[in-house]
């Protein structure tokens, strides 16, 4: 997408910050439309392809933005926000999983509500997987940054 805000410098096309945000909004709009198409067709493939293509498109468009849209402060904000989101989500889901398991076992092991109980245990396994992934990434970045 190009508009009057875009310009050329030495033959190379650059994009202004607002043009990039317009691109992101257009991609988001298309993603919603394709998701709806997927629902109508009962086929998840168009949605999956659209999301991958959309992410790649935004990544490529970002490379043509001449102005600064991300710097060390925005990176720090992203880091802290991501960490807090992970912590809150993890604790929330852990409590939810415990709640479900206790509900399932509430009438005793003999009357174990299998469907709900298995969902709770699967959720706990997923949460353990997140911890394992966190530890692996933490070790990797510790090594990368000299520990």
């Amino acid at each position: 997408m190009r508009n009057r805000a875009d310009y050329r410098d030495g033959g190379e096309v650059f994009m202004k910050r607002n043009s990039f945000y317009l691109c992101v909004a257009a991609v988001a709009f298309l993603e919603v439309a394709i998701f709806w198409l997927s629902v109508e067709l009962a086929d998840p493939l168009p949605s999956v392809i659209a999301i991958v293509v959309g992410i790649l498109g935004i990544y490529l468009a970002k490379r043509y933005v001449h102005e600064v849209i991300e710097d060390e402060r925005t990176e720090k904000i992203t880091e802290i926000t991501a960490l807090r989101t992970l912590q809150i989500t993890w604790i929330g889901l852990f409590l939810f999983a415990l709640w479900i398991i206790i509900e399932a076992l509430g009438d005793g092991v003999r009357h174990f509500n299998r469907q709900i109980g298995i969902f709770g245990f699967r959720l706990l396994v997923l949460l353990c997987g997140i911890i394992v992934l966190y530890v692996i990434l933490s070790l990797y970045y510790n090594k990368r940054y000299g520990a």
């Binding site: 102005e67 600064v68 710097d71 060390e72 402060r73 720090k76």
Partner: peptide
Amino acid sequence: LANEVGVTRQTVLAIENGKYDPS
């Protein structure tokens, strides 16, 4: 200044106001 040092205007504002310590 933001353009000269490669950051956003908001970052310069945050540094000036003492809300963010630069690297």
